[in-house]
């Protein structure tokens, strides 16, 4: 049988392949990165260059990472979790999965970043921020003769029926931020009235947070409620996308970083932590086409990045809206009161 010949070959291949790694017993660090892969790679390369520590990086979305860290709670394999929207980082802190570490450099950070640390009892910290915005495909609007939206109120215009997309707040942190923002802008009762009106115009609640602008870029959709940096990314690529900050004021996310409790390479994890908070490190994000706002006061944002000082930001209450009780209540209400309404 030919099978016989296959087996030794594959075993040989396996042996070579599996044993070729791990030859060096050098300094190690295991990182999970929840930002874009280019940015993750850039961070790893810069850190390795600077410290000589051998970084093993995996890229996973923040939801996947939180699920994994929870599953590995009793025997953690990851040292640092860098990037990704702040809520799961806060949840991880709430559940005690992450390590308490107070960086001496907290005073060099924007207020929203150090707030994140204080709220979580120093189990996480902000590394970047991004405002929520309304992104639209200006070509399609023009073709259909529709007005350009300027704020939340505009999106309920019946002319936009079937033209608006947002993610499902049950699955996406972006959309939950949007839901929480609406609640804070309009108050809870009026906020749900707003969500019901908006619902009439929504063509799909996508799973992933940035999907609405990606489909708008390719003309599959017209208007999306997304983070502004995700929209800028599409515009920079050349797609006909315009992004505006809602006139009524808007919420924002704080991309965060946490050290895992029980990290096997704690010293290197702390090195990474300080490295990631430094101004020069954060300034380099532009090279990876990341248009978020850096958390270090002296870091400079890329010129295409939306400037938070030009945006009317609400005083987003992370404490209330990040808590799992509020989250469960709002999502349950959205599930029963908004989602099932026929369009």
């Amino acid at each position: 049988m030919k099978m016989k010949k296959l087996l030794p070959i594959s075993v040989a291949v396996a042996t070579i392949g599996l044993s070729s790694s791990n030859i060096f017993a050098a300094e190690k660090l295991n990182v999970i990165c929840s930002a874009s892969i280019d940015w993750c790679q850039l961070m790893v390369n810069e850190f390795e260059k600077e410290t000589g520590v051998n970084v093993k990086m995996t890229r996973k979305s923040s939801g996947e990472t939180f699920a994994q860290l929870r599953a590995e709670k009793r025997n953690p394999k990851v040292d640092v979790w860098w990037g990704g929207t702040g809520d799961p980082h806060l949840q991880a802190a709430e559940e005690g999965i992450t390590y308490k570490y107070q960086s001496p450099n907290l005073n060099k950070l924007q207020k929203w970043a150090s707030n994140q640390a204080e709220q979580s009892d120093f189990r996480t910290v902000g590394v970047y921020a991004g405002g929520l915005g309304i992104a639209y495909n200006h070509d399609i609007l023009k073709k259909k003769g529709l007005p350009a939206p300027k704020g939340w109120e505009d999106l309920t215009n019946p002319a936009y029926k079937g033209e608006v997309q947002m993610a499902n707040p049950n699955s996406s942190g972006t959309a939950y931020t949007a839901l929480a923002t609406i609640m804070q802008v309009f108050g809870e009762e009026k906020g749900f009235e707003y969500m019901k009106k908006l619902h009439k115009n929504i063509n799909q609640y996508t799973k992933s947070g940035s999907a609405p602008v990606k489909s708008a870029a390719r003309g599959e959709n017209t208007i999306g409620i997304v983070f502004m940096h995700d929209a800028v990314k599409q515009a920079v690529k050349g797609f006909p996308i315009t992004v505006v900050a809602p006139v009524e004021g808007t919420g924002y996310e704080v991309g965060s970083m946490s050290i895992v409790k029980g990290a096997r390479n704690l010293d290197n994890a702390k090195k990474w932590y300080e490295f990631a908070l430094r101004a020069d490190t954060q300034t380099k994000a532009a090279q990876a086409k990341a248009f978020q706002v850096p958390s270090n006061l002296s870091a400079t944002a890329p010129k295409e990045a939306p400037r938070l000082e030009d945006i009317k930001l609400i005083d987003y209450d992370f404490k209330t809206f990040g808590a799992s009780d509020t989250r469960k209540r709002l999502l349950a209400k959205w599930d029963t009161d908004v989602k099932p309404i026929p369009r």
Partner: peptide, 24 residues
Amino acid sequence: PLVLGGNFEVLSTQIFYAIVGAQN
């Protein structure tokens, strides 16, 4: 279903988002 699902929800994607989604 993830790419083409639209508003048509099926078990497999629901399970995925029950685990990795905002609800966890």
